[in-house]
Design a protein around this nucleic acid. Sequence first.
DNA 1: GCCTTATTGTACCGACTGGTATTTAATTAG
DNA 2: CTAATTAAATACCAGTCGGTACAATAAGGC
Lengths: 202, 202
Amino acid sequence: MSLDPIKPSRGRPKTLDRDHVLDVAMDSYWKEDIGSLSLNEICRRSGVSKPGLYREFSNEDGLMKAVLIRYQELVLSPVQQMLNSDVPFREALDNLISFAASVSCHDESPNGCLFIKMRESRTHLGEATRAQVDFLEEQGLVTFQKWVERSRAKGEFSAEMSSEFAATYIDAQLSNASSQIARGEDPQMVQKILVAALSILK
Amino acid sequence: MSLDPIKPSRGRPKTLDRDHVLDVAMDSYWKEDIGSLSLNEICRRSGVSKPGLYREFSNEDGLMKAVLIRYQELVLSPVQQMLNSDVPFREALDNLISFAASVSCHDESPNGCLFIKMRESRTHLGEATRAQVDFLEEQGLVTFQKWVERSRAKGEFSAEMSSEFAATYIDAQLSNASSQIARGEDPQMVQKILVAALSILK
DNA sequence: GCCTTATTGTACCGACTGGTATTTAATTAG
DNA sequence: CTAATTAAATACCAGTCGGTACAATAAGGC
């Protein structure tokens, strides 16, 4: 294409650091209640003026969608790749469990999976973000289902249930684990519950 | 005692219908996002002026605590009584499952268990309500644990796990089911997941 | 007829929300 | 140099929030 994203280099140079804002916003949404975190607060924290933020992301919905996409690239994608690889089923399951029982943005207070938090806060999301959540949810279910099907073909999964149900079940349990982590429950207990619940996949 | 709750019968007669307000508030908190439902809105819906509501419940915290207590009496208590009775374990478990997979305030949109919703919205609660949630949570865990212990003594529960863990596990799965119902997922699927997850208790 | 007591609703408070109009600053094109 | 272009931040908008001062009202006691 002829439209290069190179400097058009005209007018006052941009000082707004998009990635910095996204980092701050992701951290904030991650460790706090999504519905209670205001744009004003994100502006304060990222040191950006409100009109600046609106110029970059259009509105709150645009910012949250951008944050979610960033989260997908940063956190979800590696997990999906692991599930798409040929790691043995039990090993992949163990990885999945320890991932779910430990997700946090940094070393601080536990907060669960941001995607799942957003899914739970569905009513607080704008149109675009909600659509992105739906897309990621579907993508996740497909990933689980294909993983189960491949594992079954390899003889590593023999539970008597449809692959579709298995995918839904895994999603439900991971979702539950994330909620518990976010609620502040002991990660070890969360993991123990997860192990028990997923033990029916054998 | 000498303090009868009979009409002190002095001053302007009260017209505020406490129970009506509580009903409206319970319904509202039940089927909508707790953190997004304002006192103003509850006043509008119940036809009560704001100072009237404050006189009756002190503040938002007081109202929510009163609502939670009402919910406990109305919904939770019967379930607890069932678990404290000598109903066979499998039957009680089935009751618990169909209860969890169907809780709604009326025939309308599903909304899960209000207590669990409040527990998930912990950050939006005032001090008194939060304390009440903690109390009910502890009470629930104790009920589950004693139920498991009695069932084990009757030879109806033989899974190899501590009664304490079993109680935590049941709580986690019911909580998950409630969240799914509230999120609008198909009750039949929720029930199926619940049955699968609780199948490890045998 | 008052006075006291208790409940009522209007009208307000300061703080905050998502979003924007507007002015000012910094750069390039000519 | 000026004009055009782009981005900056201040200061504002209407609306909502939880909470309250306050004057009007309705009853009993005397």
